[in-house]
Design a protein around this nucleic acid. Sequence first.
DNA 1: CGAATGGTTGATAAGACTCAACTGGTGTGG
DNA 2: CCACACCAGTTGAGTCTTATCAACCATTCG
Lengths: 229, 229
Amino acid sequence: MKTLSPSLEIKTKYLRRLHLFHSLSEPELSQIADFSYVRTADRGEILFRQGESARELHILVRGTVEIFFLLESGEKKVIHLLSGPSLVAEAALFMGSPWPADAHILSESLLVAIPRDKIIALTAANPELPWRLMGGMFSRLNEFRNTIENLSRKSAVSRVAVYLLTAAPDCPQIILNAPKNKIANYLGLRAETFSRALRVLVNQGAIAMEEEGIRIMNRSLLESILGEQ
Amino acid sequence: MKTLSPSLEIKTKYLRRLHLFHSLSEPELSQIADFSYVRTADRGEILFRQGESARELHILVRGTVEIFFLLESGEKKVIHLLSGPSLVAEAALFMGSPWPADAHILSESLLVAIPRDKIIALTAANPELPWRLMGGMFSRLNEFRNTIENLSRKSAVSRVAVYLLTAAPDCPQIILNAPKNKIANYLGLRAETFSRALRVLVNQGAIAMEEEGIRIMNRSLLESILGEQ
DNA sequence: CGAATGGTTGATAAGACTCAACTGGTGTGG
DNA sequence: CCACACCAGTTGAGTCTTATCAACCATTCG
């Protein structure tokens, strides 16, 4: 982790990218920016650990972060794969509970950190802010809902189909935001099974593998696979 | 669904059971109670359907409700088994989004419904209220987190062990709050597999089946099973 | 009584996991 | 510069858990 010291304008620009701060006035935003610090982190670095007390809100401006916890068996279970711009585990932070999981950097990232009390202070003057926070939590809730739906879906192929469709809601080109083994874990699959599932989809003509990523060749075919199982 | 007309005191008493309303003053609470109505519902009745717009907050005072959605395959997936007193799908209600899943009554229940706008109006005067709501959402988030952890756990036996341990954090006696096939579904298992997993635990001496429910005979043994897989 | 529901048990089959081998790319240190 | 280890990804073969299908029992309810 390397701390940078960008200008206030730069910091404000970073913050403005987040939906959460849209309701803040310009002075409020730069006030927050003033309290915040900017860091870069490389692959493999640890953002936080489960159980540590959450003192600052981490904002992922650019890069990728994985959120995971350790199962009793000792295995890792990835529950989020975040790409910037995104808040990181904001629910736990705002509720004042310790981090519920571990966060590791997956690829070179730019992060902004804001002390918890500074943010909390803001909510007093901004009644909409808690509602925005709830909105964020609600999307997490929906993500989890989808994850559960996905884990309940028996077939590996259809899990992958769901993932691909949601990863690229409109454009046919998918650049995976994490290594395949992480995505496999997120989907509750082994890397081998994930690889084989992709192959099945290629053979069926639903997708094509390209150097840069994956291309959806036949969206409706992919959608029909969901219904199968 | 049969609508009752209890006294204002009775209604207020029901509401007071919920954590959410703890910060409200007596007049506020009875004001809310005045707007609310009380109903009873029998097994099999529908509380709401996925996609319907959420106009009132349902409070389950007594009884059992299942929350589920339909997978693409047409199968049901149970995501919550609620016992009163409990809020039902409050996150969706407060966010103003349509019901994200279906809710059916599992056993004879007593319900209170409060129009959405009346609750929202309250939050203006009670700045803590949104935070309490967030608290509720946060617990759901944690429930989902646990569900995902559970679904990721491979062994059926350990899934059941987790369920039993969390269902009875202290006392050894467990009265299942839903039919076994619903619990099996909630755990991502077939009813047959659930039954067999219980049998394994009985044979190992971890639990015992009784007429009224299940008794934990050897808690530490049960806990050790979690670690196995 | 007959039907429906919830639960248990047995036999079989399918799907994913496991283990192992192999590839290509990347980074490191002698 | 090369040998080496390491990591991500792929493929193959065998195993194992769970789903599936079927039969059966108990209870409840009309």
